[in-house]
């Protein structure tokens, strides 16, 4: 397996979906190629970074809903009730 193929298989490997026969080759390459090892680490870190930056614990979230949005929704609902 070459670095190019390893990059293609990366996502399946990370999610545990890479078939057994590819996984052995993947891991063999990984054990010999520092550059691919580093790329894999950064790929996983990137996914994690996105989750942390935009996730539940993120600053822009979620506790405070703008008061004017709450008021706007409730007012609009009264104008156009369900029934």
């Amino acid at each position: 397996m070459k670095c190019r193929e390893l990059a293609d298989f990366l996502m399946d490997y990370v999610s545990g979906e890479l078939p057994e026969e590819h996984r052995a080759h993947f891991e063999l390459h990984l054990s010999r190629c520092r550059n691919c090892h580093e790329y894999l680490a950064q790929y996983e870190s990137t996914v994690k970074a996105g989750r942390i930056a935009c996730g539940e614990m993120s600053d822009e979230l979620p506790g405070d809903v703008p008061e004017d949005l709450v008021k706007a929704v409730l007012a609009a609902r009264k104008l156009d009730p369900a029934k």
Binding site: N35, K48, A49, I52
Partner: peptide, 25 residues
């Protein structure tokens, strides 16, 4: 079939880097 770029390792684990609001931003 080798990578053209040599990947420089990142300075710190992401969870640590993302403790800073500016990095999350």
């Amino acid at each position: 079939g080798h990578h053209e770029e040599r990947f420089k390792s990142w300075d710190e684990p992401v969870d640590k880097a993302l403790e800073r609001a500016e990095t999350r931003q």
